[in-house]
Design a protein around this nucleic acid. Sequence first.
DNA 1: GTCCGATCATTCGTGTACGAATAATCCGCC
DNA 2: GGCGGATTATTCGTACACGAATGATCGGAC
Lengths: 157, 157
Amino acid sequence: MAPDLAERETTTEDETALGGYALARQVGHLLRRAHQRHVAIFQEGIGAAALTPMQWAALVTLVRDGQASQNQLGRLTAMDPATIQGVARRLLARGLIARAPHPADRRISLLAATPAGVALVKATLPAAVAISEATLAPLNADERRTFLQLLQRMAFA
Amino acid sequence: MAPDLAERETTTEDETALGGYALARQVGHLLRRAHQRHVAIFQEGIGAAALTPMQWAALVTLVRDGQASQNQLGRLTAMDPATIQGVARRLLARGLIARAPHPADRRISLLAATPAGVALVKATLPAAVAISEATLAPLNADERRTFLQLLQRMAFA
DNA sequence: GTCCGATCATTCGTGTACGAATAATCCGCC
DNA sequence: GGCGGATTATTCGTACACGAATGATCGGAC
């Protein structure tokens, strides 16, 4: 496999022409790659439960809060109304959540985890913890604290 | 707007049942939200260039490296062959990049930025720098160094 | 009591993201 | 010199992600 020539061929515009801008050092690129790596760890670690990160987020939130409207669940998990719609539809199809009409507001249908959904969350919780742990594996305890604290501010600024 | 009742209705399973697992504190959730915030800043900051983060990544990489095969460009920007295909197709359609047959390998067509693509990158570079800056705005200079160093390890571990 | 702005859920369109399968081509090994 | 494994690009299917538009409903101001 032609070692270097393959990855760096004819150089038309040198990096100097980009004024020191290196994609690999930009926050956005690093955030994307770190998230990408986490999703891969998640898929691997979630195993037989076969949930996506978003499905897990929605389900675990419903288990914690008991019930919520669809848009409300979207806000709690940082999903667009259009996005949570698809996530909810797939969880509904698997029988992990259920809908009930809101007693007073006919626009709303309340979502709640079914017994199967609650059971799945309880069974999967150790895997979820292990996933977070594995994602943070490159850092030691001190670094994890620092990183999470800074990341929190980057996320919610 | 019913303040608290709306966001926390009937609580079936208390947080204690989740053994202290709080979605809002998990790395994966925070990485997703930080990335989400960055993409919003990017869309806002890129302005008239109307590029997505991925299109920018591919284009700036081609300007730096001169030319690359499609899969190679995907590897350089951390995109699946299936994903880079769509990104390249859209850049091609806008005339920002062009294809040429590889002189020796008929499987490969080489991608390169067109003069229009190079010009767009040069014109957009200040905006790209400002986007990275705006994304890191919640942190001071010391924190940025620390965060980027740790994030780098999280991304490439 | 009725109108008006806000909210709820859905749908459409576009753009990542990636596993899996495919056809064409390449290359090293025998 | 032909064969088998690797690589290239494409396609299909599924799942986020979100702007924008829609129709139903709600709630408060008048």
